[in-house]
């Protein structure tokens, strides 16, 4: 399934809903969109992976890049994910210790925007 990207605003958070497959071919488009959002002034970004069917190392690299960029800018970055296969990927790479992971968008936007270790 092709990559789909949709943005909405919830309070002070920008929520990017991602769907489909995030891999070496599609990840550049995700990177581009995240950069657009951050360069456009978004400081509290939530990426909703709820409709992602596939996520590889390239996609993870893009997400880490956005996290770093937002931290540097004094912002926050969180992920929404409740699918076990994807959660396993975060556990195996220990990136579950890097990203704030939430099971719903409500939980993500309700959390204090303190970045990692939240």
């Amino acid at each position: 399934m092709e990559l789909s990207l949709a943005t909405r605003t919830v309070g002070e958070h920008t929520v990017l809903e991602v769907g489909g497959e995030v891999d070496v071919y599609t990840a550049p488009r995700l990177r581009e969109r995240l950069l657009e959002l951050i360069d456009g002034g978004a400081r509290h970004v939530v990426v909703d992976l709820g409709r992602v069917d596939f996520l590889d190392s390239t996609g993870l690299g893009v997400l880490v890049g956005a996290l770093k960029r937002l931290r540097t800018a004094g912002g926050s970055f969180a992920l929404v994910c409740d699918k076990e296969p994807l959660l396993k990927i975060f556990r195996i790479t220990a990136l579950d210790q890097v990203f704030p992971l939430h099971s719903t968008v409500d939980a993500a936007v309700g959390a204090e925007p303190t970045g990692a270790n939240a």
Partner: peptide, 26 residues
Amino acid sequence: PDALANESLTDEALTTGVGFALLAGF
């Protein structure tokens, strides 16, 4: 895995490291 969280890694090194972690893990 701990090194993957290292902030100073370049994006390329991170992606390569994550790729290997996934191969070895799965």
